[in-house]
Design a protein around this nucleic acid. Structure first.
Ligand code: DGT
Ligand code: MN
Ligand code: MN
Length: 387
DNA sequence: CCGCCGTGCCAC
DNA sequence: AAACGTGGCACGGCGG
């Protein structure tokens, strides 16, 4: 994957850059008008002094060091109190896209190949996932419309080829259903349910793509131990409402709560946890940990077991997919891995075959108590293939 | 000039 | 920000 590389449409990216840069300048001048004072919006300390000293807005949250925070959740809570708040939020969105992606990615294009060659690090994460660096191609934007314009600029390494994407459906929830013993979650997946959509419908009354995406965050935050307070802030509802959502979740899937406790107990007694394929992560001081430190380690232990097992499956799938492509579609090859997604490239006429091979490799990676499902797509660029 | 820390935010 | 987790990275601020 590293050697094969991925192409970046620098011309289109240049267009995105000009639009975002213009927009950012507009935001900066409007923000200074709103604040009535000169301010560098890239400086959290300057933004905080405008928000909380100059404008006198309430301090809502604190940073790790105890200073007043101005992060996105705080800005969300302050929205409507002063026009400066929304301008800071918008500035953060646009400046992030420029500084991390639009302004940086072109410098990673190799003068030799004309492609971007990331590093996929195999011994960095604590759970067995890969990571990607220089540049990180596992966090290319997709959430906002402006971000999607960036994703649209990624294409197959060979001109004329297409990208083929295959992404596991609800992967860690399926792994959890496997690990958590018989129950409603396992039954749901045997009936091919979409729990993300189910949660979206229950919480928002809609399963639109945006609501499903938010429901995903709700589902994973709940299974990994979110507090009513934390969920309330994420959803913008009061603690009572959030508490009700969590309680209904565990009432519907009591085996999830039971698994959390049993996983913690086993990790404590063995001093380690193991994934489905036997990858170990040590938790030698869980047994002696107390208070918030212990709670935090408990969440890490459960997450490691599930996330690490999902990473196991993905690695098996990649071995099989690479081998089959080699034999069956030699003009195709793996290009990227994004935790539960494989991106390959091939001539357009072979896209359907390649998608089938990726699907079979991933769905058949390992037999679980629930079926594994994969969504595939292809197109000229990554957004078309994945989106 | 360089490296570190704190803060913040992108993705899964 | 907070009792979801796993990452990488940019910037400002500061000190060597
Ligand atoms: N703890 C935690 N894990 C997450 C979060 N977002 C994603 N993940 C993990 C769990 C997911 O199963 C896995 C793959 O992410 P995806 O975006 O592909 O979501 P998922 O496969 O669950 O749903 P999908 O059917 O592909 O839309 O990454 C999160 O906010 N918190
Ligand atoms: Mn997925
Ligand atoms: Mn995915």
């Amino acid at each position: 994957m590293e050697r094969r590389g991925v192409s970046l449409d620098s011309t289109s990216l240049e267009g995105v850059s000009r639009e975002l840069t213009d927009l950012l300048g507009e935001i900066e001048s409007r923000a200074e008008d709103a604040a009535g004072i000169r301010v560098n919006l890239r400086s959290p300390s300057q933004v905080s002094s405008v928000l909380f000293d100059h404008l006198g807005l309430p301090r809502i949250g604190r940073t790790g060091k105890g200073a007043a925070s101005s992060d996105a959740t705080v800005l969300q809570a302050l929205a409507g109190l002063h026009p400066f708040v929304g301008l800071v939020a918008e500035h953060r969105e646009i400046s992030k896209l420029i500084s991390t992606y639009v302004g940086k990615l072109p410098s990673f294009v190799s003068p030799v190949t004309g492609l971007i060659h990331t590093s996929f690090n195999q011994a960095v994460t604590a759970t067995g996932r890969l990571s990607s660096s220089d540049p990180n191609l596992q966090n290319i934007p997709i959430r906002t419309e402006r971000g999607r314009e960036i994703r649209r600029c990624f294409g197959a390494p060979r001109a004329g080829d297409v990208l083929v994407s295959a992404d596991y459906s609800q992967i860690e929830l399926r792994v959890l259903a496997h690990l958590a013993g018989g129950g409603a979650l396992r039954r749901a997946y045997r009936e091919d349910a979409d729990i993300h959509s189910r949660t979206a419908l229950a919480v928002f009354g809609s399963s639109s793509p945006e609501h499903r995406r938010k429901a995903k965050e709700i589902n994973f935050s709940i299974i990994y131990g979110v507090s009513a307070h934390g969920l309330a802030q994420r959803l913008g509802v009061d603690r009572g409402t959030a508490s009700g959502i969590i309680n209904r979740y565990f009432a519907a899937y009591p085996e999830v709560d039971a698994y959390f406790r049993s996983c913690v107990a086993e990790t404590e007694s063995r001093g380690e946890t193991r994934t489905i394929l036997g990858r170990r992560r040590l938790f030698r001081n869980l047994a002696s940990a107390r208070g918030n430190t212990r709670k935090s380690m408990e969440r890490m232990a459960v997450n490691t077991t599930v996330q690490g097992s999902a990473a196991d499956l993905m690695k098996l799938a990649m071995i099989r997919a690479a081998d089959r492509l080699d034999r069956e579609v030699p003009e195709a090859g793996l290009v990227l891995q994004v935790h539960d997604e494989i991106v390959a490239s091939c001539p357009p006429g072979r896209a359907e075959d390649v998608a089938g091979i990726l699907r079979e490799s991933m769905e058949g990676a390992y037999r679980l108590e629930v079926p594994l499902r994969v969504e595939t797509g292809w197109g000229e660029n990554w957004l078309e293939a994945h989106g």
